[in-house]
């Protein structure tokens, strides 16, 4: 019979957990902190709805501009893009969560445990993926019920999946940046700086033809444009084209690069 405070040499000990258990347990912990914080949960859900409401009102006249697809309402044009930009903003929080863990010492505690560092990063990414999925589903439901969004068939499920893949890939990029910056303030500034060109220098709110020349260039090299175009095809026409696969390919490359740099940054002292 060992005492509750005695070292293991005098009592039973555990032999370490599997990678799968580590990722699941750590993901559960990240999600729990969201679920246990009603304010956090509320803002997480309200932000995309607010964006949808404002953009659908502010930019509704875009539907009358030349080059706008005929017979498409602005909400139907906007919604597939909003799925992608919402996934983008979720991706950005992956870095924030990491830096918070670093700042308040939770990360040091984990790193002093006999667990794999990669599972800490993977769990972050996975938790944000789940959170993003919940956000997007709620958004789609609200868009259909309140804003008159009329997706074509099950293409919207494909668009959801695509947005998740794109968000997941970009999430690794922001996670990698976070492991190198390690400071909430700088990270936030970087995030803002990166967010605006990614969101607005794309086909999200305007057809490409409606953008000034140099912005058109930015939008063509912006990986989000591919995702948004593919998302539109999926929701408006219910079809999938090579654009979707290009977008998935880009996301996988970003994810792989992000993983490498995140792992390096994580080990850096």
């Amino acid at each position: 019979m060992s005492s509750s405070l005695a070292p293991a040499t005098q009592g039973a000990t555990w032999r370490g957990s599997s990678l799968y258990t580590q990722i699941m347990v750590l993901t559960g912990r990240s999600l729990r902190s969201v679920l246990l914080d009603p304010k956090n949960l509320l803002f997480t859900l309200l932000t995309p709805l607010m964006m949808l409401l404002l953009f659908s009102q502010v930019f509704s006249n875009v539907a009358n501009t030349p080059g706008f697809p005929k017979g498409v309402s602005y909400i139907n044009f906007l919604m597939p893009a909003t799925l992608v930009t919402t996934a983008l903003s979720a991706a950005m929080t992956a870095g924030v969560g990491f830096v918070n863990d670093l700042r308040n010492g939770v990360l040091a505690r984990f790193r002093a445990l006999p667990i794999n560092g990669g599972s800490i990063l993977a769990a972050r990414s996975l938790a944000d993926l789940v959170r993003s999925a919940v956000q997007l589903i709620i958004m789609i439901v609200a868009a259909v019920a309140v804003f008159g969004f009329t997706p074509k068939g099950f293409g919207v499920a494909g668009a959801l999946l695509l947005a998740l893949i794109v968000g997941w890939g970009l999430g690794w990029l922001f996670l990698a940046v976070a492991t190198w910056m390690r400071n909430p303030e700088t990270l936030q500034m970087f995030t803002f700086l990166a967010m605006f060109p990614l969101m607005f220098g794309s086909s999200a709110y305007m057809p490409l033809d409606g953008l000034p020349g140099w912005m058109q260039f930015v939008a063509t090299v912006n990986p989000l444009t591919y995702a948004i175009d593919a998302s539109r095809e999926l929701t408006l026409q219910g079809t999938i084209s090579s654009t979707a696969f290009t977008s998935i390919g880009i996301s996988l490359v970003i994810a792989a690069g992000g993983m490498v740099f995140a792992a390096k940054g994580f080990r850096r002292q």
Binding site: R29, R32, L36, N104, V106, A108
Partner: peptide, 13 residues
């Protein structure tokens, strides 16, 4: 076991 100013618990749970 590590306890101290730089190793801490998760305050959110």
């Amino acid at each position: 076991g590590l306890t101290g100013q730089f190793a801490s618990v998760d305050e959110q749970i």
